[in-house]
Nucleic acid binder design. Sequence first.
DNA 1: TTAATACTGAACAATTTGTTCAATAACATT
DNA 2: AATGTTATTGAACAAATTGTTCAGTATTAA
Lengths: 183, 183
Amino acid sequence: MDRRQKKTRESIFRAFISLLSEKNFNKITVDEIIQLADVGRATFYAHFETKDFLLKDLCAELFDHIFYAENHSGHTHLNIFQCDIHDSVFLHLFKHVKENDNNVGKLLSSNNNEIFLEYFKNGVRTLVINHISDFSDKKPSIVPEDFWINHVTAIFIETLRWWLKNGMKQSPELITEYFLQSV
Amino acid sequence: MDRRQKKTRESIFRAFISLLSEKNFNKITVDEIIQLADVGRATFYAHFETKDFLLKDLCAELFDHIFYAENHSGHTHLNIFQCDIHDSVFLHLFKHVKENDNNVGKLLSSNNNEIFLEYFKNGVRTLVINHISDFSDKKPSIVPEDFWINHVTAIFIETLRWWLKNGMKQSPELITEYFLQSV
DNA sequence: TTAATACTGAACAATTTGTTCAATAACATT
DNA sequence: AATGTTATTGAACAAATTGTTCAGTATTAA
């Protein structure tokens, strides 16, 4: 990719994240973004069709490298499995968020944009589906499988949000314990 | 309240709910609302400062009579306790939503507006706090009290959303069982 | 009947959005 | 270093939307 394109794109993302952390998505104007990013108006629209697409692209940028990756044969798989095999994937995810807290954390805790949360939720859901057998001994027999997947996903998300809201005081290991115990 | 005011207000709410069920809050224009509600532009702004306030007022309209009520001495209390004492409050809440599914249900299942969900969540949270002792025997000892309140609240909300998303096929009694068992 | 109040609808300025275009700058390649 | 390609710029533009104003009309409560 052309160096200019990359710089513009990153500059817009940076500005956008900064604005998102202090105000609601719907209150942010394109003018604010391009002024903070210091790019021309036409440039913005050359990169992103609308503000909605900007948000969607940002989601992809932030999450895809955590959740998904492509191997050489073009298949998509869960990228998170490639990391340290000794951690549970959930502990691993908590660590990811903590390391990256200027971006993912900031956005997940500012309860602004469903699109963002929705995107993240889908990633976690995929993860949960792949690990649902770890929780099957805790599943009450009367609830349907689909309910249970939803349930575990929601608990993970809410644990994460609680952690972020309270300033990530606990270690990722302890939070993982909270998560696992409360399922 | 003047009969005209009441009619106008209700007409706007009706139109707004109808629009909310088919498109995102941010995509709805004031023009669409007043055309569907069949009221003048100036009238709309005489009732609601902005579209945001309209949403907030709608939340109050739909939820306050479920969650809160004022007694004659002016104190606010949980209205839900006044209903059938034999039901658990949670079963009761599921019933409320089912009866009112053209409004509350429609809006909660269309994952559009955080303001709406946030408002609802606060009501549920108050409820959970008042009943947290019912769940204390299930609470893992390592998690903090505040975490646990969050957790139970989230499970209730997610159970409700799952139920709505799947067309409320289960009875309120069964869903309450799902909820209680998965805590 | 009357006085107060709510509604109307059109007109208005101010913001915001998304597009266009010609000029300029940065880039990759030879 | 020269060249052709591509990205960026900034200004100008129409269209859509917001929120306000006001004089005229209709409804209400008493």
